[in-house]
Design a protein around this nucleic acid. Structure first.
Lengths: 158, 158
DNA sequence: AATGGTAATGGAACCCATTACCATAAGGAG
DNA sequence: CTCCTTATGGTAATGGGTTCCATTACCATT
C-alpha cells in the first residue's frame, strides 16, 4: 500500500521543499521521481509522457512550471544541447555524488556524460568561482562546462 | 573609394571562406562586419537590425543562414544565456586573442565577460580535451564554460 | 556579350517548444 | 465547515527559428 520510500533516501528533498514554503504535491513528487529514476537527459515532454503514464491527470503546463521551480531552487539543472529543446537533470543527491559534465556531438546531437577529469575541473572551478565572485560581486550558484565536437560515427560520413 | 580594409586585418577570414568553397557575398561580409565591430553579445535580430541599417536589402532569413554557416565553420560562437534567444560572437582573430568566458546573472540576464582565469582554464581544458578525445573517440572542436549566479543588484532585492 | 548551371537570397508560411490566461480544484489555518 | 492562498489543466497565444519556392547574383565557358 502507498508504496512508501521505495528507494532509500529518495525523499531527501522533502525537507528542503517545505522549508522554502512550497508544497510537495503529487505532481511535483511524480516529476522528481521520474527525474530520479532516469539517467537520461530528459526534455520537458519526455518527462510529461513518463509522468502521464502513471498520473494521467498531470498536465504539460504543470511539468513546465514544476521544472522551472526545481531549477530555481537548485534541485534540477537545465541544459541546452543545441537541438531547440531544454534537457533536465536532477542536480544530484544531498552531497554531490555522481557529478558529471557533457560532451556533445554537434552533428547527431549525441551526448556523453563524462566524469573523467571532474575532480581537477571542480577544483579549478571552485578557485575560479571564488575569484570571480569577489571581483565581480556575484553570488555564484552554478557552472556549466561542455565540450563540442564530432563523434566517431559522424566523422565518418564527411 | 570602395572603403577597402578600413581596419587592419579585418579580412583575415576572406581566405578561409573561399578555401571552403563558400562565396564571400555582400550580406555575409556585412554580417561579419557587424560582428567584428560590436563587442556585445548580439542576437540574430540585433544583427539583422544593424545590417539592415546599411544594407536594407538583407533579410532576416539570410542572417540566420549566414550565422549558422559561420558557426559551422567555426568563425562564430553561438551562446545560450537562458533568455530564449541565441547570442553570437566572433570566435576571434586568427590566433585566439581576447578569448573569454561568461558569467551570467540568472535574474536579470546580465552577462560579464571575464578573462581572469582563462590561462589556467584553457590549460586544463586542453588537457581534458585530449583525454576525452581519445577515450570517447570525439574530434573536439570547441568548449563552453559559463558561471551562473546573482549579480549585486539582483541580490539586493530579495 | 550571350549562355547555362550552381549558390545565395528574401519574404511569407510554417513549426514547435515554451508561456500566458483563466476558471477550477486542493490544502491548510482557524 | 469556511476562507484564502497555492497549485493545476486545458487551450490559446507567443515568438524564435526554419522551410519553401520563385527570383537573382555569381562565375566559368562559348
Amino acid at each position: 500500500m502507498k508504496a512508501p520510500h521505495r528507494r532509500r533516501g529518495a525523499m531527501w528533498w522533502h525537507g528542503k521543499f517545505k522549508g522554502m514554503g512550497y508544497r510537495l504535491t503529487t505532481s511535483r513528487q511524480a516529476i522528481l521521481d521520474v527525474l530520479g529514476e532516469s539517467s537520461e537527459h530528459l526534455s520537458a515532454e519526455d518527462i510529461y509522457l513518463k509522468v502521464h503514464r502513471i498520473h494521467p491527470g498531470v498536465g504539460l503546463t504543470t511539468v513546465y512550471r514544476t521544472l522551472e521551480l526545481l531549477v530555481q531552487t537548485g534541485l534540477v539543472f537545465k541544459f541546452d544541447f543545441g537541438d531547440g529543446r531544454a534537457r533536465y537533470e536532477l542536480s544530484e543527491g544531498p552531497k554531490g555524488a555522481r557529478h558529471h559534465h557533457h560532451l556533445v556531438c554537434t552533428a547527431c546531437g549525441r551526448v556523453v556524460d563524462y566524469t573523467d577529469f571532474i575532480d581537477e575541473e571542480i577544483e579549478l572551478l571552485n578557485r575560479t568561482e571564488k575569484g570571480l565572485s569577489a571581483k565581480y560581486d556575484f553570488k555564484i550558484t552554478n557552472h556549466l562546462i561542455q565540450f563540442y565536437g564530432l563523434c566517431n560515427e559522424c566523422r565518418g560520413r564527411s
